[in-house]
Design a protein around this nucleic acid. Structure first.
Lengths: 204, 204
DNA sequence: AGTTCTTTCTTACGGCGTAAGAAACGGATG
DNA sequence: CATCCGTTTCTTACGCCGTAAGAAAGAACT
């Protein structure tokens, strides 16, 4: 590789592309180096170790989930909805990093800023402090859980399930359960249910 | 190791204990063998490969989540609630396997049987076929997502977060956000919200 | 030119999953 | 008793992995 063309950015770019293609399990320093055209050890000039590289991938994906911290006065419901939709959008854009997102607590300053602003919006809307945190956290964890079930991590396919003896399941599968638009509709169904539940708690 | 004392059961037992203690990342065939008092390759007499061993762990943990398939006539709401609570109970009992559960689609016959019975209960209660599946899947994925955020995988601790500049977060942390009973209350809050949302959709 | 700083590569170590087959053991059979 | 045989365990070895240590190559400045 010619000198000076590399940077942490380019390393993360290549790593993200590689993870999306072959999954986290297939990402090795040697393979990533080969993809970029460089020896494995060269990567350590830009990244202290592999763990930090994975952290960088998570941060990069999540940073695009929410455009910017919600402004005060935003309606709480659309705020939560948009956060959930954006989160899911980015996770689906990079399914390979999903296992990483699932295993890492979110604690970067950028995320905290969004959280703080979100809590402020909910407080304005009448939520208690505790309830505000619960609502936001529950929304995010719901999205993570849902998306985990939705996409098979790259590099492995879903096993076909044997529905003999289970007429309801067989019928549902025949009607398209598991198809992409089914995931969308399940997401909307459950997200709206969750938000309805928050609304009911707000009234009480 | 004296002969004949080993079995697939005992291997899985030891693996589960080891995973709970040091996490999935620390589980290696050599280490597991040492724990049992046997060479690594001996394990391959009871398990075709490591992946299958991990599958076995997941199956073992999840099989205890729901005592038995719900009987027809069970109230739908308490059925979903108990399934969620049981699922979370088992996941918390073995936090080490959480990353495995998160990454594996549930498709064993035992799980399908519970699912079939659950859908039947919801259909009786008036849910459409599609909505019944959505409600069950959403409940489970919610539990997985929630529990992922709740427990740090063994072998790593939560990083302390810097709350300077975020007064709401700082205040909430000071009031015990993140403490065990907070997780419980958030779980109850969000689960009931979700179930309320299902109920509202059932009425409509 | 020589010197210094930045960037890349070479080599090597210990640990991983596991393929292949040898070795030990226990019970049945003569 | 000796022999055989199926079951269970161990030995050895291969090709991967992350990465420590430091040599080498290139660019920039004096």
């Amino acid at each position: 590789m010619e000198r000076g063309k590399l940077s942490r950015e380019r390393v993360l770019d290549a790593a993200l592309a590689l993870v999306d293609e072959i999954g986290v399990k297939g990402l090795t320093m040697r393979r990533l180096g080969a993809e970029i055209g460089v020896e494995a050890m060269t990567l350590y000039y830009y990244v202290p170790n592999k763990e930090a590289l994975l952290d960088g991938l998570v941060e990069r994906v999540l940073s695009r989930a929410v455009a910017e911290p919600p402004a005060p006065g935003t309606p709480w419901r659309s705020m939560l909805r948009e956060a959930a939709v954006g989160y899911r959008r980015e996770l689906l854009r990079h399914p390979g990093v999903l296992p990483l997102v699932a295993g890492r607590p979110v604690s970067g300053p950028e995320a905290l800023q969004v959280l703080e602003a979100g809590v402020a919006v909910l407080r304005e809307a009448g939520f208690g402090l505790r309830e505000a945190f619960h609502a936001i956290t529950a929304t995010i964890t719901f999205v993570v859980g849902h998306t985990l079930a939705e996409v098979p991590p790259p590099g492995q396919d879903e096993p076909a399930l044997d529905t003999t003896g289970f007429p309801l399941i067989a019928h549902a599968v025949a009607e398209g359960l598991g198809a992409p638009e089914d995931h969308q509709s399940r997401f909307d169904y459950a997200l709206d249910a969750l938000l309805d539940g928050f609304a009911a708690r707000l009234r009480a």
